[in-house]
């Protein structure tokens, strides 16, 4: 029911990030077999490695990426952008100079992406861009590198970010004709939970 409502919401408002509601309903720990957990991880990986997500989950050079079908070739963000160690451009050019914080982000074609929270890079330890599925899986399973979260808290983080119109919501509804991350928010949360309930198995 909720999922159906969400799909409807996406159809009505195809452009721009927005407040997205979702539920975290964790299965019993251990109730998901490893094989299903790995299958769920593959779907999670398809989301987090998608350019809508990975372009801003970059390493210690603090340079966001331009990649995906919208760009003729993969490369660093144009205009010599460097978000600095602050990861928000405080030392250089604030991300929010172009990626404005908006109460109702509604991207037109080619507008700079915007969300309801201040635009920024993900913390450096959460690097996804250019990483293998196994590497990202290891990072997301490691509380020292995932913001100190267990698998349920990871799902809650996704829910809460989206409820505030943050980057998770934006990734699934980026507007401006951009290709969204595959699937939808609720499926993504459900997959994270399945993967967690299976004991966070990683490929390889």
């Amino acid at each position: 029911m909720i999922r159906a409502a969400l799909v409807l919401l996406l159809l009505v408002h195809p452009a721009g990030a927005e407040v997205m509601s979702s539920v975290v309903a964790p299965p019993q720990e251990g109730s998901v077999i490893r094989e299903d957990g790995l299958a769920a991880w593959d779907r999670v990986h398809a989301v987090v490695s998608h350019p809508r997500c990975a372009n801003c989950h970059v390493g210690a050079d603090n340079v966001p990426m331009w990649s995906g079908p919208e760009y003729p070739q993969t490369g660093p963000h144009g205009m010599n952008i460097d978000a600095g160690d602050s990861r928000i451009g405080a030392e250089t050019l604030p991300c929010t100079t172009c990626h404005v914080t908006s109460s109702a982000p509604a991207n037109g074609p080619n507008d700079a992406p915007a969300a309801m929270i201040d635009w920024q890079l993900a913390p450096v330890e959460m690097i996804w861009f250019g990483q293998s599925s196994a590497q990202i899986c290891a990072q997301m399973s490691d509380p020292a590198r995932n913001g100190g979260r267990d698998w349920i808290q990871l799902a809650e983080h996704l829910r809460d970010d989206a409820a505030h119109g943050g980057f998770v919501a934006w990734g699934f509804a980026p507007g401006g004709g951009r290709q969204p991350a595959p699937g939808d928010l609720q499926s993504h949360i459900d997959d994270v939970l399945k993967w967690g309930a299976a004991g966070q198995p990683c490929p390889g």
Binding site: L93, H99, V100, S103, A104, G108, D111
Partner: peptide, 27 residues
């Protein structure tokens, strides 16, 4: 350009540079 690519519309909001083509009046 209207899409924050050229910077010709830059203003300050409380001293911070912002592309005025990107920020809505309400924001």
């Amino acid at each position: 350009c209207g899409i924050a690519q050229c910077g010709a519309c830059t203003v300050h909001i409380d001293g911070v540079a912002v592309r005025s083509c990107q920020i809505a009046l309400a924001d």
